[in-house]
Design a protein around this nucleic acid. Structure first.
Lengths: 339, 339
DNA sequence: CTGAAAGCGCTTACAG
DNA sequence: CTGAAAGCGCTTACAG
């Protein structure tokens, strides 16, 4: 069907080896031969086929990022960093979105064994260590982002610490009855953040009240949605004894929570988590994750591992940085809002 | 390095053909042979290599979606539809994110000629018809989403019509001085929406005032960001003679615009475009794009073309549907807002 | 600088 | 049901 190296060789009256050389090393080819080859290749619309090259070279020049959901600020920023970090490398990046409905580990495994890519960036996918060990059998270069396993290079953020600091800040600001807006508890970051929240309360002699942990109904994207935050805050505001302040699992939920407060004409101090782009405009105090840098570092690690497969496994844990804005210092009061 | 079909054949004492059959057609293999093969395959950790299969079969069982930016609601919803539409098909979907900084058409071309996938979904990437024709030479099955070219199957939404109807609605509501928040004008949807806006004004005998078309400074994602909307609305609100109402290029910008109005304690009626998930909670009147359905239809078309390559090229154009909520009917007034 | 040839790991008629 | 063999389209020592 398509034109192959043989067609070009025939027309240009050279061997296929020469054609191949023109399209590759570009060395050891006479100027005349090169020109002829290029000419007929252009005429016939020839281009090397990735599959055949992949097989012959045993390299695919491909890196696959495996992600749980698209369109989540965390992911986007991370991938931005990844892409910037690989501009000089001769690799393509493709993204594979596992379907959350189905067997996630099965999907990841499927990709790993297909072996289509030379290396894998696995982002925000959480599994028991046992599973990761199993995947180690595929001998594929892997870097984990937002997850940890002793077997692979990894980059993550200390969610426990971040939640702890956020909550402690609220306590130090004089609040006693501090609520949390959580999300799907099966998600590692969520359970970590709940843990940090609880610890901070305990360390400061405050009672942990499970009824003060709210979640919306919408569990799309593990609950990391505006809607979930909106719903959660609505519940919070309906409690008889209103909390003084709230630590919110993510900025995107905080956005919904703020809307809910506006609708209810009640505002309580709020701290988010992530520092997405809109947070600055919202005046949202938040725990910033260095998402871009995480992506950049991740691809660096992966590229390194590709060149030196036997180098030591390395783990990087970032500490979230508190960004203080206005949302955390608002006094409790009623107010009129528009829209 | 990795274990191949030869290793299995040797250990299981069968030919490579039999091994291959076990992993494929699953037909014409005795139960005994199958069991032996499966057993040693499992022991040795064998799995067919995608590249080799791809070459031998001349099929890759892969579909590539080429997209301009990740994390944009439109895209996510479309891809959701795509994935749901291909669950029964034996294909993997991978996503390729072209970098907006570089030569976009070059990147698309690169993918097309690598020929790694069997079919391509190209989403929200705009090019002159001439370019598309050029890409036709690669003989790859392609479906265009949010773009049109006579050569390929396509699915789009009539942005002109949507903007026209939104603007007309505002006019019919009694507004005379109607502003628009636009975005990067080099973007097809943006220029189409500006066109619809202008036409509606003209058709109703209203003057088109270029100074009433606002845009933010932030042109990340062609200006489809909360920040851009925020900045644009800020400019709008600073004009001496305040507009009566505003048609906003996208819901995500409307989100920022609403925030800006709150910060300025001024609210004017607003209509967005897209109907992203948060819009309902925002009470945002908007022109809904059937994103999910577009994705689903797109993959259907592509799958069809894969099976019958010579079927007629088909174009589907959806009309945006107006979803009326509260944001479009608010009277101009000052108010107090929180946050 | 150039070509013949082996090899990458699989699939698939074909013959039995 | 099974195997030998050709073929998919390229790369890369090797010999010249």
């Amino acid at each position: 069907m398509a034109v192959t190296i043989y067609d070009i060789a025939r027309e240009a009256e050279v061997s296929i080896a020469t054609v191949s050389r023109v399209f590759n090393s570009n060395t050891n080819v006479s100027e005349k031969a090169r020109e002829r080859v290029l000419k007929v290749a252009k005429e016939m619309g020839y281009h090397p086929q990735a599959m055949a090259q992949g097989l012959a070279r045993k390299k695919t020049k491909l890196i696959t990022a495996i992600v749980p959901v698209l369109s989540n600020y965390f992911l986007t920023e991370v991938l931005d960093g990844v892409q910037d970090g690989m501009t000089d490398a001769d690799f393509d990046l493709n993204i594979y979105n596992v379907r959350s409905s189905d067997d996630i580990s099965g999907q990841v495994e499927h990709l790993l064994k297909r072996g289509m890519a030379e290396g894998y960036l696995i982002i925000s996918i959480h599994m028991p260590e046992k599973k990761w060990r199993q995947f180690g059998n595929y001998k594929q270069p892997i870097v984990l982002i937002d997850e940890y396993s002793s077997l692979f290079d990894s980059i993550s953020v200390d969610s426990v610490e971040g939640a702890y600091n956020a909550t402690e800040f609220l306590i130090r600001s004089g609040h006693q009855r501090i609520a949390m807006i959580a999300a799907y508890r099966g998600s590692k970051p969520v359970s970590d953040r709940i843990l940090g929240y609880r610890r901070a309360l305990e360390d400061h002699g405050l009672m942990v009240d499970e009824n003060l942990i709210f979640t919306g109904v919408d569990m799309d994207r593990d609950g990391f949605t505006e809607r979930n935050g909106y719903e959660a805050m609505l519940k919070l505001l309906k409690t008889d004894y209103l909390p003084d302040a709230c630590f919110c699992n993510s900025d995107i939920q905080a956005l919904g929570a703020i809307k809910a407060m506006q609708d209810a004409h009640i505002t309580i101090p709020l701290i988010g988590f992530d520092d997405i782009r809109f947070s600055e405009l919202l005046g949202l105090t938040t725990m910033k994750q260095p998402m871009y840098d995480m992506g950049k570092l991740a691809i660096e690690k992966l590229l390194n591992r590709l060149t030196s497969p036997d180098s030591e496994v390395s783990h990087t844990v970032f500490s979230p940085e508190m960004i203080i804005r206005s949302s955390s210092t608002i006094d409790i009061h009623q107010e009129e809002t528009g829209l």
